[in-house]
Design a protein around this nucleic acid. Structure first.
Length: 222
DNA sequence: GCGACAG
DNA sequence: ATCTTGTCGC
């Protein structure tokens, strides 16, 4: 796939934060996704093995979730894990994977946050600028923000609020399971992002595209 | 200063 | 994320 907004990755943490503050002004997080028009959806995930990072992007049909393309990429892990700077750790290997992608998915689901981030530019938002396609952040645990208790039933959701701003939703994708934290990455909005993720979770807590990417990246379920 | 902290 | 078997619960 053609990538946009590319930039060097060899930055210090302070430089990375400065870059995020620049890039966040480009992020569009109030645009509804036309779910009815989706034909292909991609799941993105990265696993780390001894200094080496492996990325996997699995493209599947929507609805139906039949895999149509899988790309893998490996590279040395270039940056430590620092909360708030995940994209600088996983970005390089993802760039390599995206370049190998033949198909052009209508939406990308990421393992991590979109705008539900201290500077409103988590990995899904950052990579969304590169892809110039709708992206959604799907976190398993919270990075920032608070939410009120939500019903135990699948489909229940509660606004995720940080510093007075609604940045996403806590969404129960499975009854009696911990909620997922959904936020727009780029070219998406909170309501349609949540609706789509729920539609992508017919059986497990993790949305289907991300489960597939997780497996392809070389891991087992959890 | 203290606590929190995606993967 | 990763180190790791069996086990408790819906």
């Amino acid at each position: 796939m053609q990538l946009h907004h590319r930039h060097p990755w060899n930055l210090t943490p302070a430089e990375a934060i400065a870059l995020q503050k620049e890039l966040r002004t480009e992020v569009v997080s109030n645009r509804p996704i036309d779910i009815e028009a989706i034909g292909l959806i991609a799941g993105v995930d990265v696993s780390v093995k001894n200094e080496q990072s492996q990325a996997a992007v699995v493209v599947m049909t929507y609805p139906g979730f039949l895999p149509v393309e899988t790309v893998l990429a490996q590279r040395p892990t270039p940056f430590p894990y620092i909360p708030g700077l995940l994209s600088f750790r996983e970005g390089p290997v993802l760039e390599e994977a995206f370049e190998k992608l033949k198909s052009v998915p209508d939406v990308f689901l990421f393992d991590g946050m979109g705008i539900a981030h201290p500077r409103r530019i988590g990995i899904a938002s950052h990579m969304g600028l590169w892809l110039d396609r709708p992206t959604i952040g799907c976190g398993k645990t919270l990075l920032c923000g608070r939410y009120k208790d939500l019903a135990e039933e699948k489909g229940a959701m509660a606004p995720l609020v940080d510093k007075g701003e609604t940045i996403g939703v806590a969404l129960r994708t499975r009854t009696a399971r911990n909620p997922m934290f959904i936020s727009p990455g780029h070219l998406a909005d909170i309501a349609t992002a949540a609706a789509l993720v729920l539609a992508c979770s017919p059986k497990y807590r993790l949305p289907e595209p991300i489960r597939m990417a997780h497996n392809a990246a070389g891991q087992f379920s959890s």
